[in-house]
């Protein structure tokens, strides 16, 4: 009985000459993606004029200098993102010092001292040590 009804149904449906439903086509839409341009959320939510100025410089650097740079930063967050975040979270004294320290560490000879960021694959070195994932013992 099951087979008969099913066959009848299929015979009826086979008379149609159109196979796709709208949802079936919609499912295929995700197969291609438009290229994504980076968004720098760290430059948003500025608390004062200094932060605004540094965020402006950061965006200027990212858009006009960093985009043209052949050498890629070894870290996540990148040195410029780290500098802006350090200035925002540590202030105008300790922030730039943390940024200079980071610049002197961005040498790619110290890879064993860091873990890799799961998304970017770069060395993970956040501003806040609490967020850091230390490497496992060898």
């Amino acid at each position: 009985m099951t087979r008969i009804i099913c066959t009848l149904f299929l015979a009826w449906s086979s008379l149609l000459a159109w196979g796709q439903s709208q949802s079936e086509i919609a499912q295929m839409r995700g197969l291609t993606q438009a290229p994504a341009r980076p968004q720098w959320s760290i430059a948003q939510d500025n608390q004062d004029e200094f932060q605004l100025a540094f965020s402006g410089m950061f965006l200027l650097y990212k858009n006009f200098i960093s985009s043209q740079d052949a050498s890629r930063c070894n870290f996540t967050p990148s040195c410029s993102e780290y500098a802006l975040e350090a200035i925002k979270s540590r202030g105008l004294l300790a922030g730039p010092l943390a940024a200079f320290d980071r610049l002197s560490r961005c040498t790619s000879v110290n890879q064993e001292d860091y873990t890799r960021h799961p998304e970017t694959g770069m060395l993970y070195d956040p501003v806040d040590p609490a967020e850091e994932r230390l490497p496992l013992p060898r």
Binding site: A94, P96, L97, A98, A99, F100, D101, S104, R105
Partner: peptide
Amino acid sequence: AGFYLGNLYG
């Protein structure tokens, strides 16, 4: 100066 002071911090 930046690298020197950053080195102390680091």
